[in-house]
């Protein structure tokens, strides 16, 4: 067998000896503050007087449990999960372009607050075979708040 190639060693050595290109620094550097400086005061939300608004606000905060996978704005790109905007009242599996599990598509569920409550309490128990593996909320109060928040973005 013949092997018809051999790069000359010398050229590679020269290559290695060449200094690297100067490495570029930032073309734009926005310094917001220096380490150790006090953080900019962020506006502290005043507690909502209206209990319903307070529940929605609590739900918005608790949605942090969900936001790694789900957006909640209209026409958002699907992430790991589908966008949840406007989901209440719609059948399961309704968001275009999202690859739902067969189990969820076949569930026949119309999302109501009660159905959603049961689902996020324990997704795999409500719809065995769902690909939603995270985000279960054990506490009823928290589920109520998150659902109120999702509903608030469904009614409008």
């Amino acid at each position: 067998m013949t092997i018809a190639r051999a790069l000359p060693l010398l050229s590679l050595i020269l290559l290695a000896a060449c200094s690297a290109d100067p490495v570029p620094g930032p073309t734009e550097q926005i310094i917001v503050r220096e380490p150790g400086d006090a953080a900019v005061e962020t506006a502290v939300a005043t507690p909502e007087a209206d209990p319903e608004l307070a529940l929605i606000a609590a739900g918005k905060a608790a949605f942090a449990n969900c936001s790694a996978c789900h957006a909640i704005v209209a026409d958002a790109a699907n992430g790991v999960g589908p966008t949840l905007y406007g989901m209440i009242g719609k059948p399961a599996g309704a968001v275009d372009g999202f690859a739902y599990s067969d189990a969820l598509n076949a569930s026949g569920i119309i999302w109501t607050a009660a159905e959603l409550d049961a689902f996020i309490a324990n997704p795999a128990a409500k719809i065995p075979g769902t690909t939603m593996v995270a985000g279960a909320l054990a506490e009823p109060e928290q589920r109520r708040a998150v659902i109120a928040y999702i509903e608030s973005l469904s009614a409008s």
């Binding site: 570029p24 930032p26 734009e28 550097q29 926005i30 953080a39």
Partner: peptide, 17 residues
Amino acid sequence: ASAAKAMPGVLQILNMG
């Protein structure tokens, strides 16, 4: 980066090209 500048904890925003 206008929104990012106002986010909590942010120190610098760099466009490195």
